[in-house]
Every structure is written in C-alpha cells, then in structure tokens.
Amino acid sequence: MKPYLLVLHNKIRIALKHIKYKGVKSNGILLISRNTKISVTKKSQLILGNHLINDGRFVIIIQDGKVNIGDNVYFNEDAMISCKSSVEIGSGCRFGPNVKIFDNNHRFDAENGVSSEFKAAPISIGKNCWIGSNVVILKGATIGDNCVIGAGCVISGSIPEKSIVTQNREINIEPIKG
C-alpha cells in the first residue's frame, strides 16, 4: 500500500477506535501495517506518538491498562504488547522482530496450579533504546534511556541507562553415542 494511503487508512482506523473507545489517541502520522491488531477495553488508554512505524504483524492488547508509545518508534515483524497495567515506551526506540512485552502474568501456586487471574506491574522503556530480536520484556521491567538489549534476552528487572544487555548462552556439542 502506498505510504500516503496507509497514513489515511490509519487516521480513519484510529478515529473509529477513538469514537468507540475514548482512550485511543494518535499524535501524528502512523505507518502501521494493515496487519496490526489493536484490542482495547472501554477503560483502556492507548496513545500513539507521531511517526510510529511497524512492518508486518503487530498486536496490541490492552485490558483496562495504559500504553503510551512515544514519537519515532519502529516495531519490526511480529511485535506484541499485552497490557493490564501500564507500558510506557520512550521516543526513538527500535524493536527487532518477534519482541514481546507483557506487563502481566497468570497467578499460580503449588496447590491450584495456574489461575485465570493475573498479576500486573508497569513496564517502562526509556528513549532511544534498541531492543533486539526475540526479546521478552516482563512485568515490572524498567529500561533506562539509550540502552541496547541483545537478541533473545528476557528482561524482568531494572536496566540502568546507557547499558548493553546480553545473555550468555553456551552451545554444548557432543558426538552421538551408540
């Protein structure tokens, strides 16, 4: 689809969402794919900054929470945000393919196993961060400004600004016996 038609398509799409769900707003030009799925409840808030771009499929699910995405943010193929509390993404961030952001998880205990109830905690991602492919960001995570999160990392704590985060994964190769 031509960029100007995509911008028009998204303006209409967000305007219709805003009519039905007052908490959905856009602050400018959106170049989000037609494969983008936005699911919100009446108490949800979604604020999309100017010049938001995504390639391919992008899923945003908000159940009574708030997602605020800054200006000039890029999401690659298969990105997902699941929000029941709060997700804040600063301006200038770049997300690689298959990045997942979950500010919630199921409650569970030893006696009953997994419940249909959830625990949630806010997520904050600073400005100008680069989040590599296949990164999972979990509830309560805070990532400071100007950070690089390497491919395949699982983030659940606090990352100070100007940090590079990688996970050490050793490959063990053994001959087949027998």
Score class of each variant (00 low, 15 high):
residue 2 K to P: 13
residue 9 H to R: 15
residue 12 I to T: 10
residue 13 R to V: 07
residue 22 K to N: 12
residue 22 K to F: 02
residue 27 N to P: 04
residue 27 N to R: 07
residue 29 I to V: 15
residue 30 L to S: 08
residue 30 L to V: 08
residue 31 L to M: 15
residue 35 N to F: 13
residue 39 S to F: 04
residue 43 K to R: 12
residue 50 N to T: 08
residue 54 N to Y: 13
residue 56 G to N: 03
residue 56 G to V: 05
residue 60 I to S: 00
residue 62 I to L: 00
residue 63 Q to D: 11
residue 63 Q to N: 10
residue 65 G to H: 00
residue 68 N to E: 13
residue 69 I to P: 00
residue 69 I to R: 00
residue 73 V to A: 00
residue 73 V to D: 01
residue 76 N to R: 06
residue 80 M to N: 06
residue 83 C to T: 03
residue 84 K to V: 01
residue 94 R to C: 10
residue 95 F to S: 01
residue 96 G to I: 03
residue 96 G to R: 02
residue 96 G to D: 04
residue 97 P to D: 04
residue 102 F to W: 03
residue 112 N to R: 12
residue 117 E to L: 14
residue 118 F to T: 07
residue 118 F to K: 03
residue 118 F to M: 06
residue 119 K to S: 10
residue 121 A to D: 08
residue 125 I to F: 04
residue 128 N to L: 10
residue 130 W to G: 08
residue 132 G to V: 08
residue 135 V to S: 10
residue 136 V to T: 14
residue 138 L to R: 12
residue 140 G to W: 01
residue 141 A to E: 09
residue 143 I to N: 08
residue 145 D to E: 07
residue 152 G to M: 07
residue 155 I to W: 01
residue 159 I to V: 14
residue 165 V to P: 04
residue 165 V to G: 03
residue 167 Q to L: 12
residue 170 E to H: 13
residue 171 I to Q: 15
residue 172 N to D: 14
residue 172 N to C: 12
residue 173 I to K: 15
residue 176 I to R: 15
